[in-house]
Simulated scan of single mutants.
Amino acid sequence: MTRGALVAAVFILLGAAVYVFGQFKPIGEESIDRSQPAMLKSVRDLSQYHAASGEFQVVLDIENDVKWVPSALAGERTLFVAAGSVNAYVDLGSIKDDGLVVSPDRKTVELRLPKARLDKPNLHHDRSYVFSQQRGLINDLQALAGPPDQQRFYVAAEAKLAEAAKQSELLRRADDNTRVMLTGMLQSLGFQVKVLQD
């Protein structure tokens, strides 16, 4: 047996041993939750009207290569399915003093609204998962030593969802919904309404 074949055999046996040990579950194993209850740290007053919400899904195809090393030995390619939602809101608290003007005869209201904004994407962890993964031998051995870090996939997914929300009709719909809601409310109070948007 050549020296290279001997080294490869040792790596394979070592990986198999780590895998078998990781799969071993003692009989009668139980999980005990000794976590402390959640504690309220702060409260904020909100003036945002969440006027529209979009559900998005993206499939990430991320490949990490190691220079000068064959992919069979090192590197990985991952297909990650991410699902999440993005809210569009109008910050009514940012309306300036001249943003709401009532006519002297108190029959007409001129309302100037700020433009809608996008909230941070809310990734649905229960519907986001690794669909497939191809790894080199070294990466396989590292994965046996502990669960792989998937944080980078979630960060990349949030960026993709945010970009998709920008390209969608979400902001326009939020602007429209806010205008319709406030117009209806003020008309029910007997005002004629003129809505402007910055």
Rank of each mutant, 00 (worst) to 15 (best):
T2M: 00
A8M: 09
A8Q: 03
I12Y: 00
A16T: 08
V18T: 11
Q23D: 05
F24W: 14
F24V: 14
E30L: 01
S35P: 12
P37K: 12
A38I: 08
L46H: 07
S47W: 02
Q48L: 14
H50D: 01
A52I: 01
G54D: 06
G54K: 11
G54Y: 05
V58A: 12
V58C: 05
V59P: 09
V69L: 10
P70T: 04
L73M: 11
F80Q: 12
A82C: 08
N87G: 02
A88V: 02
A88I: 07
A88P: 14
V90P: 06
D91N: 15
L92F: 00
G99K: 02
L100D: 03
S103W: 05
R112D: 05
L113G: 01
K115A: 08
K120F: 06
L123R: 11
D126I: 07
Y129I: 03
V130Q: 04
F131Y: 13
S132E: 13
Q133M: 11
G136Y: 00
L137D: 01
L137S: 09
Q142E: 14
A143V: 06
D149H: 14
D149N: 14
V155H: 06
A156L: 13
A165S: 11
A165T: 03
K166G: 01
L170W: 10
L170A: 07
R172Q: 13
R173T: 00
T178I: 01
L182S: 03
M185C: 09
S188M: 04
L189N: 12
D198H: 00
D198V: 02
D198R: 07
